[in-house]
């Protein structure tokens, strides 16, 4: 990122090469459309190029940060709204290092296993919030569950994931 800040096109292309697949996959999962997912992906990396200061290492690892930004931008796109949060306000604390592809691949498998092990109702609430971009009241309406139950299920799902990923 230092080289990107210094205006290095090659450095920016290298960042794209490493992380564009991850960003695109998240955008595609949300938008279910290759063209829109690529638009979101290109826009995120282009914004990073135009304003490299939007990410600093005090905001976490670049890979984890890009994943959160990708999801948020894809949801904005899905809801056809202006970005709900500027990207430079997103701070991500994560002990993971997604720079190494081998590491990343091992971690992906672990995460999928953990998410698959969650109780069905937690998986459903998390999916509706994370990938479909529904608000808590929309999820309550969709599932017929009280608002408090929806909130608890989402938080429990994230807590379980964090706990099981802890070293």
């Amino acid at each position: 990122m230092e080289r990107v800040r210094a205006g290095g096109q090659q450095a920016m292309t290298a960042v794209f090469d490493r992380y564009a697949g991850l960003v695109y996959s998240v955008a595609f999962r949300v938008l279910k459309d290759a063209g829109h997912a690529e638009d979101v992906t290109q826009e995120i990396f282009f914004q990073l190029w135009r304003n490299p200061a939007s990410f600093s290492f005090s905001k976490g690892s670049l890979g984890a940060w890009l994943l959160v930004v990708a999801r948020n931008r894809a949801i904005d796109h899905l809801r056809q709204r202006r970005p709900a949060e500027p990207i430079d306000e997103v701070v991500v604390v994560s002990a993971t290092n997604l720079q190494s592809e081998a590491e990343c691949s091992i971690l992906m498998k672990r995460v999928r296993g953990i998410l698959g092990d969650l109780p069905q109702e937690q998986q459903q609430s998390l999916q509706l919030a994370f990938f479909d971009g529904l608000s808590h009241s929309e999820i309550a309406e969709r599932t017929g569950q009280p608002l408090g139950t929806v909130k608890t299920r989402i938080r429990s799902a994230l807590s379980s994931l964090r706990k099981r990923l802890e070293p």
Binding site: F16, S25, G35, E38, V92, V93, M108, L115, L161, R162
Partner: peptide, 30 residues
Amino acid sequence: SLHGDLAMVALGVEQQPLPAGARERFAQRL
């Protein structure tokens, strides 16, 4: 920390290959 948890949820999605030419389009835009 919650954003870190969400990054992991995002990491769990099935990986898709980038559309053909996406890299070139980005390089051209740069």
